[in-house]
Nucleic acid binder design. Structure first.
Lengths: 256, 256
DNA sequence: ACATGTGAATTGCTTCACAGCA
DNA sequence: TGCTGTGAAGCAATTCACATGT
């Protein structure tokens, strides 16, 4: 097992630490590697090179090797990585050796879809309970689970050993829900509501905001449009577009 | 230092010579600032300090000031930023002065929810068309739009001036859909399918993978659990965590 | 011969601390 | 007396290039 430096000061280790503390950027990519590895395994590959895995995961190979080196992982020089072994390693590090129970709060439009999303089940999670504040929704069956009232959260969280909370409520309700989750012992939250949550130290929040993703793309569209028309001010640069299609954006460029 | 603007020239959207090319990290935060600013405006604030806005957006104030400085933005020393002006600035930079038309491909579980998500409509986008490859779904009405067959994409994309494509199909279909979108002239794609897309240069892809978000949280849960053995100071609020999730092999002396 | 693992160089992002202005 | 805008310092992540091991 490889030995590597410990960035923090206080970690004194004589024995092998169970969990190296990985750079956040690496952690965010491990799930991607894991998915690619499962695909490779399904396709019958037993080993894969950094080049090959990097391609399948959409990153470059140097980055992949560095990421894996943080796990102290086992590759074989001249050969590559053992797919099955690497799957186990990554699943262990990500804490996926147990199937984590997830509570979903808010069964509106989006919550409904999330409750039925099989990607959760197939990748290490179990939606263990659904909650809503709206009494008229309580009791409704969604994907085989009955919607419960949010007040039952503390009891159910304990019973089901809830590990992660997902918030899919409207924004105004999200902060209160977050607090209820924290009070029920949940220390990891995935927030789909478009708002900032404030939570105590030690609680992790990740946010997914669908409109923000579109807005980021919008920026790039805007920029591409302004670059397509600006340079070489003589001729229209529309021909630069592959496929020869004129995007509607070109009309908005250059206000000068 | 690159682009500077004349501090005296007042302008409205459209008068800026070219788009400054912002750091990606900044671009990703602008939508967050924008949302916070809208909230502030609704609450009646006319100006806001970097501190105040940073708080509302969940970032620190130095970062916010640097981000805004990249836009060449107008704040007033000793006072703060004019909320309405800043909203205009950011909306312009993000290309939100026009309401962009979005095509959504795949009206399964998740696609259905996205089609009905009002966060898109309220934040600068218009879902202009729904597509699916499944003939039995074509014609179905969702949120006032009829589902069309994917083969109609080229025609509809042109008619509706589609700016952004959203892929909500199963993973195996996603690459083909991406190619169809690109062929139809779409240069920005938001991908919800758990797979890597390969697209030509000049096409932007952003990915949202719900299971990956949970897996990242899982990592942190795992790490927190492995540290639960030691700290004497502070928090005991999570003693409610049942199931004994502490990994056995983490006995490790850290500090004291 | 070939592909991993890793120091070193580089790039990009964040944070600090304060000059400059209202 | 504020609070913005920004050089400069500090960190983190990426990329390079090659020594290392099989």
């Amino acid at each position: 097992m490889s030995q590597h430096r410990h960035p923090g000061a206080s970690d004194r280790a004589g024995a092998v630490p169970a969990l190296p503390d990985l750079p956040e950027a690496t952690v965010a990519r491990l799930p991607e590697y894991l998915r690619a590895l499962h695909n490779l395994a399904d396709a019958g590959h037993e080993t894969v090179s950094s080049e090959g895995l990097a391609g399948a995961a959409g990153v470059n190979s140097a980055k992949l090797r560095k990421d894996l080196s943080h796990l102290g992982s086992y590759g074989t020089r001249g050969v590559g990585y053992d797919v099955a072994l690497l799957v186990d390693q990554i699943e262990f590090v990500l804490g996926l050796t147990q199937r984590r129970a997830v509570a979903l709060v808010g069964v509106g439009n989006l919550g409904h879809a999330l409750a039925g999303y099989d990607g959760f089940a197939s990748r290490g999670f179990r939606i263990a309970a659904l909650f809503d504040a709206d009494a008229s929704r309580v009791g409704e069956m969604i994907s085989g689970l009955a919607v419960r009232h949010i007040d039952e959260l503390p009891r159910v969280a304990a019973e089901e050993a809830i590990s992660i909370g997902v918030i899919a409520t409207p924004a105004p309700a999200a902060q209160a829900v977050a607090e209820q989750l924290v009070a029920a012992g949940v220390t990891s939250i995935l927030n789909f509501a478009p708002c900032v949550l404030s939570v105590p130290d030690g609680v992790d929040v990740r946010k997914v905001d669908l409109a923000i993703e579109l807005q980021i793309l919008s920026f790039h569209e805007h920029r591409k449009a302004s670059l397509t028309a600006l340079p070489a001010a003589g001729g229209s640069a529309l021909t630069a577009l592959p496929g020869g299609l004129v995007t509607p954006d070109t009309q908005e460029a250059i206000g000068t």
